[in-house]
Computed example of a mutant assay.
Amino acid sequence: MTVDATLTARGLLLDMDSTLVNSEAVVELLWQRWADEHGFALEEVLAIAHGRQGWATMAALLPDRPEELNRADNARMLADETRIVEGVVPVAGAPEFMASIVALPHALVTSANIALTERRMDAAGLPLPSIRITAESVTLSKPDPEGFLKGAAELGLPPEDCLVFEDSEAGISAAKSAGMRVVGVGPRAIAFSPTAHVDDLTRIRVEPLTDGRFAVHVLR
């Protein structure tokens, strides 16, 4: 492997689903059920759903539907997602990547709630960062930048010093709106013009520097 790009940062902000944890089988199963109930094709739903909180996806697809119905559907879906962990595995390279950043400032920024976050990270065998921004932490879902801005604030860093790892259009858009650079992870991410792109986390190497920053090497 050779270095394709090097990005420097003082903190990392990490999405969870499809960035660290492969939970797509469960996600597709439950959204298929919802899509069937409401007359949508699964592909139509997933084009919006990735990266967003469930209620926000429902609101985008059914703009005239009362919010309380979307919130209720979202609560039921979260309960099912928390219960079903078959097929939830780490994204390739995620265990090694998480081990390499354990001593560096980093936070999880996910659209999942606390219970689902803990369940999926545990199912994938990944350590849970001490700083995490979950659905309970924000009033607005990605693509709004609120979650990433809160993550940077929790790290005590300005947005421009943070590097985001994301897979979805909503997440990449949120990071860019927050004034942050983005490493897109996985095949979906490349279409949304991240700062750099990797197929999975086996292509990332992190190197501490002497001035409090660290270098993130993107390999090809």
Rank of each mutant, 00 (worst) to 15 (best):
V3E: 14
V3H: 13
A5D: 11
A5T: 12
L7V: 12
L7P: 09
A9R: 08
L12D: 11
L14G: 13
D15N: 11
M16W: 01
D17F: 03
D17T: 01
V21Q: 12
V21M: 12
N22A: 15
S23C: 07
S23G: 07
V27Q: 09
E28K: 14
E28D: 13
Q32M: 05
D36Q: 14
F40D: 10
F40R: 07
E43M: 08
E43S: 15
V45F: 01
I48M: 06
H50R: 10
H50W: 12
G51F: 06
G51N: 06
R52F: 03
W55S: 06
M58S: 10
A59N: 02
A59M: 03
A60W: 03
L61Y: 06
P63H: 05
E67D: 13
E68Q: 15
E68T: 11
N70T: 05
A72E: 13
D73T: 14
A75R: 13
R76S: 05
M77W: 10
M77T: 02
L78F: 13
D80H: 14
E81G: 04
R83M: 09
I84W: 14
E86L: 09
G87L: 12
G93V: 03
A94M: 04
A94L: 04
E96I: 05
A99V: 05
A99D: 13
S100D: 00
V102Y: 12
A103H: 15
A103T: 15
A107L: 09
T110E: 05
T110L: 08
T110D: 03
S111V: 08
S111G: 15
A112Y: 07
N113C: 09
I114G: 07
L116A: 14
R119V: 14
R119M: 13
M121T: 05
D122E: 13
G125N: 07
P127S: 10
P127H: 08
L128K: 05
L128F: 00
P129G: 09
P129L: 06
I131R: 14
R132H: 15
I133A: 03
I133W: 00
I133P: 02
T134K: 00
S137H: 11
V138G: 02
L140M: 15
S141P: 02
K142T: 07
P143I: 00
D144S: 11
P145A: 09
E146H: 09
G147I: 08
L149I: 08
L149Y: 08
L155I: 07
L155Q: 08
L157R: 06
L157Q: 09
L157C: 07
L157W: 08
P158R: 06
P158A: 07
L163A: 09
V164T: 10
F165M: 02
F165P: 02
E166R: 00
E166V: 01
D167S: 07
S168L: 12
E169S: 03
A174E: 03
A174M: 04
A175C: 06
A175E: 02
S177P: 01
V182L: 10
G184C: 00
G186I: 04
G186H: 04
I190L: 11
I190P: 08
A191L: 04
S193C: 09
S193Q: 12
S193L: 10
T195P: 03
V198N: 10
V198F: 10
D199R: 15
D200E: 01
D200Q: 05
L201C: 02
I204Y: 10
I204N: 12
R205A: 08
V206Y: 10
E207V: 15
P208E: 05
P208T: 03
P208M: 05
L209G: 08
F214N: 05
H217A: 04
V218Y: 04
V218A: 02
